[in-house]
């Protein structure tokens, strides 16, 4: 009986495993092969030859490459920090049942509506904000003026473009962080708060001594998840600045795609692809080690 069970298990596992190997791991191997050759998609008659580490040298000495790394890190860290901040505030607001003695109504309604931006097509998020924040035709600047806030040419201004991208990602992904933290809040035992109140704790002490420590594992998961996801940002940038002005918002995904499909330097694109994958994997290991207290599986 055991043997047939194990055989079934192998069959169960096989389709998923094969697909993942074929679509996710095999291409990485292909990238590795590409990185040692001199393939260019727009020059199909170029004789293929082994070029050693030449591609690696040219990418690693390319200022554009390092610029894209910096841009991606800025976007990644800023977005994650903001999303954590706003997500925490929103989750706390949605969870305020203990304070007034009973759960205020309508919280589920708010939570549902607030979550919608996360499910929207990133291309659409980009296009929406691109036209909404347009300095000629968009409603954003008139609305800001109504409140006496500064207006800019958000996506074309060298100084603000990258923060516009950060703002878009924050707008879209804060709800996700909010959901994760909100669920974490639910698991905190209410009796802990009751005991604290008996001991004379005020709201701030309840928050700092009970809520925050109990939320640490959840916050760590949220941080690592968001950081990893935002490093791969692409659609919102392409829909708005396309990496501009200049290369101020050219994240690593945009840089690699341009290299491979606009300049058609296929082998170099493959090299860059490999390098950024290694970068993301290294970052994820750092994040896991710095933030995690237990393994995730």
């Amino acid at each position: 009986m055991f043997r047939s069970r194990r055989r079934s298990f192998v069959f169960f596992l096989l389709p998923a495993l094969l697909l993942i190997i074929f679509i996710q791991f095999m291409p990485m191997g292909y990238n590795l092969v590409l990185s040692f050759l001199n393939i260019q998609l727009n020059k199909p008659n170029l004789p293929v030859k082994f070029v050693g580490l030449q591609n690696y040298f040219s990418i690693l000495s390319d200022k554009g490459f390092w610029n894209s790394v910096v841009v991606t890190l800025i976007i990644g860290i800023a977005s994650t920090v903001l999303e954590l901040l706003f997500g925490l505030i929103l989750a706390l607001l949605l969870d305020m049942k203990g304070r007034f003695g009973k759960a205020p109504g309508g919280m589920g309604f708010f939570r549902g509506l607030l979550f919608i931006p996360y499910m929207i097509m990133p291309i659409m998020v980009g296009l929406t904000w691109f036209i909404f924040a347009d300095s000629n035709y968009g409603m954003l600047n008139p609305i800001l003026e109504m409140f006496g806030l500064p207006t800019r040419v958000w996506f074309s201004n060298e100084k603000t473009a990258i923060w516009a991208i950060v703002a878009m990602d924050t707008w879209q992904c804060t709800p996700m962080v909010m959901m994760i933290i909100a669920s974490g809040l639910k698991t905190i035992d209410a009796s802990l708060y009751e005991a604290a109140v008996v001991d004379g704790a005020n709201s701030w002490q309840k928050f700092s001594s009970i809520t925050m420590p109990m939320l640490k594992p959840v916050l760590k998961v949220a941080v690592s998840m968001r950081l990893m996801d935002v490093m791969r940002i692409y659609d919102t940038i392409i829909a708005t600045t396309k990496g501009g002005p200049g290369n101020k918002t050219e994240a690593i995904s945009v840089f690699t795609q341009k290299l491979g499909f606009e300049q058609f330097k296929t082998s170099q694109g493959g090299t860059a692809a490999l390098l950024i994958t290694i970068l993301i994997l290294v970052m994820s290991q750092i994040v896991v080690r710095v933030f995690s207290t237990k393994e995730s599986t």
Binding site: M28, S253, Q257, A273
Partner: peptide
Amino acid sequence: DGLLSLILTGRMMPAVALVIPLYMV
């Protein structure tokens, strides 16, 4: 466990890194 970690690592592959070789394929 090892296999599972491998699979979950796959989730971190940026689409951009896969699209160049996959397009060739």
